[in-house]
């Protein structure tokens, strides 16, 4: 392979590329079937870990932008959500709030991670947990508006909590390894040649 030097490209193009590629990354998490979590033997859809990873790896601005881009493409009809769902239905359905919550998820996760000098596992865990909490904070009232009963909506959402807790931990661990493998990912794009 060629020796590719660390490029010092103009930032707009590098930012654009990261946003686009991460939007695609979250889409692929949903499209790609059969990712096995732990030893359960049941393929689990891990797409909703995508916004957490986007925030934790790219930071608040670019992470949020990539989630917004993905949701916009879903809304115009591209089948990029898990199970090949696309269009406007996922947004107006009962779990639509959790989708809108992804935006806040990436934002909050990114904001917390950015505060750390060198994001280690504790900070990342805190960030992804907060990210998921915001998603719930938006998704549950939305569901409550549907059913007309906030309490019932909260109880129903508990079903997903164990799985989502697993994803929060997994996203933090993965982000920690990625930050160690490619230091400087958060700060500026394209400094891997250092």
């Amino acid at each position: 392979m060629p020796d590719v030097p660390a490029p010092r490209v103009s930032l707009p193009a590098a930012d654009l590329a990261r946003t686009v590629v991460f939007a695609a990354f979250i889409a692929v998490l949903g499209i790609f079937p059969g990712i096995y979590l732990g030893g359960s033997g049941v393929p689990i859809v891990i797409q909703n870990a995508g916004p957490l990873l986007a925030g934790a790896i790219l930071g608040a601005r670019r992470g949020t932008a990539s989630v917004v881009l993905l949701l916009a493409l879903v809304a115009i009809g591209l089948p990029l959500l898990s199970g090949g769902r696309g269009g406007l239905a996922p947004f107006v359905g009962p779990s639509g709030g959790f989708l809108f919550g992804w935006i806040a998820s990436a934002l909050v996760t990114g904001l917390i991670v950015q505060r750390a000098e060198r994001p280690g596992l504790p900070v990342l865990l805190m960030a992804t947990t907060a990210g998921l909490a915001v998603d719930y904070a938006i998704g549950i009232p939305f569901l409550g508006a549907y059913t007309g009963d906030l309490g019932a909506a909260a109880v129903q959402s508990l079903v997903f909590l164990p799985g989502d807790a697993g994803k929060v931990v997994a996203a933090a661990v993965i982000a920690a390894v990625v930050h160690r493998a490619l230091p400087g990912t958060l700060a500026r794009p394209a400094v891997h040649g250092e």
């Binding site: 590098a14 590329a17 990261r18 790896i57 794009p189 891997h192």
Partner: peptide, 8 residues
Amino acid sequence: LRHADELG
């Protein structure tokens, strides 16, 4: 991420 850098 590498692909993103190359695309950029």
